[in-house]
Every structure is written in structure tokens, then in C-alpha cells.
Design a protein around this nucleic acid. Structure first.
Length: 268
DNA sequence: ATGGTCGGCTTCCGA
């Protein structure tokens, strides 16, 4: 099973590029972030007519996440638990072919310090709490998305320039480490212990041309999913195309070995 | 020191 995450930065502007990448990359599951669309205006027919199952958790103009899958999508959870007052659409989770999959769009948090940074840290605390419960299921789980965290200096071209940024602040990286110490496997680093593996290049200042990137899109695997990990890659060439998102797709391939890996369904 | 680029929505905000 090939599971991908892709911050598309607007479904309306990215639809042709997304459809093109779906054809060539042939993932089984796609976690989308920043659809910047409500559920009502998301072009779900464009996907359903191409044999994708679609579930969205949208918001007009900003944020918004979605799941695309070849197999049926069941037991959908919309919104990150833990704060009934938080109405930002940043989390959707579901059962797909025996795997619990989440599409995550963590807050950016700039400027730091400030209320946006406080919201980011509180949101990550809620993610940490929810993730602990998912580990307790002892099932294959994949938490995929834009975490807006640069985990280590190795994960950016110029650490000095990110020193005071919410994506690289010690508080943000500490939240990341809390997740890792819970028992999640960072799939890209598992398969690529050294090297850049950037997933985002700013539109400004010729960041792509200078390869001034950062690694902020991650797939975290539960132990039961990590046991099945066969490959993890960044489709970085997608970033260099016309009308590209500022993020590249990232994916893992899992060799699921039990009967629950089939698409035949049923509750898990 | 500053400006630079996108997307969505509306004359600006978020990234």
C-alpha cells in the first residue's frame, strides 16, 4: 500500500497538477492539506469519476484537509479532539484498507512568540494526547501531513535563517520529539538517515532554484506500520513544475501482511 | 536593510 501526503496550497489552483501526479505516482491513499475550500466547493466529482473515494474536512478560504483512497474510507473522524472551541479544519482521520490514516495540517505558528505560536503549541499538545490513544490500538497507523516543524538542523538548508521561526523554535521541536519518544517512526529518516529530504521551498527569493528548502511534511508510523515499511521518498521534481505547490508530495510504501490489508472492508 | 511570490478573497491575510 502506497500512502502519500501532499500540501497542495489550494485545490482550485492545483487541480490539474494534482490529477497529473495521481496518475504518475499511483498512490493508494493520499492525505491532502491546505485544500483552501469548503466541503461544498471541493471538486469531489473530479476524483470520484476517476475511481477515488473522497472525504473532506474543509474550511472556506483557509486550511482544510482531505483523504483520497482507492479503497472505501470508513469510520471518519473530522477535527482534532481536545478543544470544542477550535473550529480550524486541520485534521481528518479514517480507516482505509486496514490502516488508520490521518491527514494533518498543524498550525504555522508565526510570529513567535505570540498568540499564534501559543495556538500552535496547544494544538500539538492535543495531537500528542490523541496520538497516544492511537498507539494503544496496537494497529497500523499513519499520521501524515504538514507538521510545520523542522525536526533538526539537518532538515533545513540554512539553520541560522530559521533560528527564530515558529517552525524551528525549540518549543516546536520538543513537541516533535515527544511524538517520537511515544514510539512513532519518522518514515523518511528511517529510509534516509542522512541527506536533506526537503519537502518545502518558499515561492520567494528563488528558494527552489537555490535548493533553500526545509523538511516539514512527515509520515509518522505506529510500530505495527513501521514493521511493514518498505520505502519512503519525496517526489521533489513535482516542486519544479509550472503552477507547482510550494510543497512536494511525500510517500511511504507499506507491505501489509495480514488479511486486514485488503480492500474488502468490514470494521477493524 | 529590504523585498521577494503565491492563493483565495476581496481590496488584505496567511504562508
Amino acid at each position: 500500500m502506497k500512502i502519500a501526503t501532499f500540501n497542495i496550497n489550494g485545490i482550485k489552483a492545483r487541480l490539474p497538477r494534482l490529477l497529473e501526479w495521481l496518475e504518475e505516482a499511483a498512490p493508494d491513499v493520499v492525505c491532502l492539506q491546505e485544500i483552501k475550500s469548503s466541503d461544498e466547493t471541493f471538486p469531489r466529482l473530479e476524483f470520484e469519476t476517476r475511481d477515488w473515494h473522497v472525504e473532506t474536512h474543509g474550511q472556506k478560504g483557509f486550511n482544510g484537509v482531505a483523504l483520497l483512497a482507492r479503497a472505501p474510507i470508513r469510520e471518519v473522524l473530522r477535527g482534532l479532539p481536545g478543544d470544542p472551541e477550535d473550529h480550524q479544519a486541520r485534521y481528518i482521520e479514517a480507516d482505509i484498507g486496514g490502516v488508520r490514516v490521518a491527514s494533518i495540517y498543524a498550525p504555522n505558528g508565526n510570529p513567535a512568540p505570540g498568540p499564534k505560536f501559543d495556538y500552535k503549541l496547544a494544538w500539538l499538545d492535543r495531537l500528542i494526547t490523541h496520538a497516544r490513544g492511537l498507539l494503544a490500538l496496537e494497529r497500523p497507523v499513519v499520521l501524515a501531513g504538514d507538521y510545520n516543524i523542522i525536526p533538526t538542523p539537518q532538515d533545513c538548508h540554512d539553520p541560522d535563517s530559521w533560528k527564530d521561526d515558529a517552525l524551528f523554535r525549540p518549543e516546536s521541536r520538543a513537541k516533535w520529539r515527544t511524538l517520537i519518544y511515544q514510539g512513532w517512526t519518522d518514515a523518511i529518516r528511517q529510509c534516509h538517515p542522512v541527506g536533506d529530504c526537503f519537502t518545502f521551498w518558499d515561492y520567494q527569493r528563488g528558494a527552489w532554484q537555490r535548493d533553500d528548502g526545509i523538511r516539514i511534511d512527515h509520515l509518522l508510523l505506529s510500530p505495527q506500520a513501521a514493521d511493514c515499511l518498505r520505502a519512503a521518498e519525496v517526489d521533489r521534481l513535482v516542486r519544479g513544475r509550472e503552477k507547482a505547490s510550494d510543497h512536494a508530495p511525500v510517500w511511504v510504501r507499506l507491505a501489509l501482511h495480514d488479511s486486514k490489508s485488503g480492500a474488502s472492508g468490514g470494521k477493524n
